[in-house]
Nucleic acid binder design. Structure first.
Lengths: 114, 114
DNA sequence: CAGGATCCTACTGGATACTG
DNA sequence: CAGTATCCAGTAGGATCCTG
């Protein structure tokens, strides 16, 4: 899913914006800091990550906690509502695992170059 | 779902493009013609419906059948692969029914105007 | 009837540079 | 460290008009 080669990119099922599902997966095991999130999400810019996190926060899927101090940092964590999204996400993944070959075949048959 | 007031518009889970899920619902009971599809999909323009149907066709979710004759018409029907999408769609609907109030509450709490 | 052609707007996502 | 500010390209979606 985090690999650019991963076929999850062709899934017709999307949760939130481009990065939302991956962010939720990153938070599945526990809270993560802003800069920690940027590592698995290779290539995401600070602005885009911020925007996606703000949307997740607005919808009540994620909570943002500022930890002040000399080395200030911010933690993001899933709320129960955000965690509940894992169910439809897993269901979508199961559908994808079962059908991605048919999907690829259909696209190849539809493309003129093969 | 087809009503502009329906809260399905705020679901974070999307299947295909803006109209894909509604088109699939329209085809659930059997084949439908182009102009038949335009009725429940209030306001959709011919170009946009065509584009969405072409994508569904390319991915193998829908088949297009031209019925020639004096009164030419075209029928669209779900393939087994397209029909299999109803499962994750129903799952997403179930999630939405269970959580849309929490979602609304979160958005209201996040909006400055209430 | 079932589109295709053209034009247009708004939004999404990203590159780059800067800041408390 | 965790963003914000600006600028920018690509795309999705739509309005309108035309056609085999």
């Amino acid at each position: 899913m985090f690999d650019p080669v991963c076929p999850s990119g062709l899934s017709p099922i999307r949760v939130g914006d481009k990065w939302a599902a991956m962010i939720i997966r990153c938070l599945e095991e526990g809270p993560r800091r802003f800069s920690e999130l940027r590592i698995p999400l290779r290539g995401i810019t600070a602005k885009v990550l911020t925007a996606s996190l703000r949307t997740l926060e607005r919808d009540g899927f994620v909570v943002r906690t500022v930890c002040p101090g000399p080395a200030r940092h911010v933690e993001y964590a899933l709320t129960p509502l955000g965690r509940s999204l894992l169910e439809p996400m897993n269901f979508a993944c199961a559908w994808m695992e079962e059908h991605w070959e048919e999907l690829l075949d259909a696209r190849e048959a539809a493309s003129p170059t093969g």
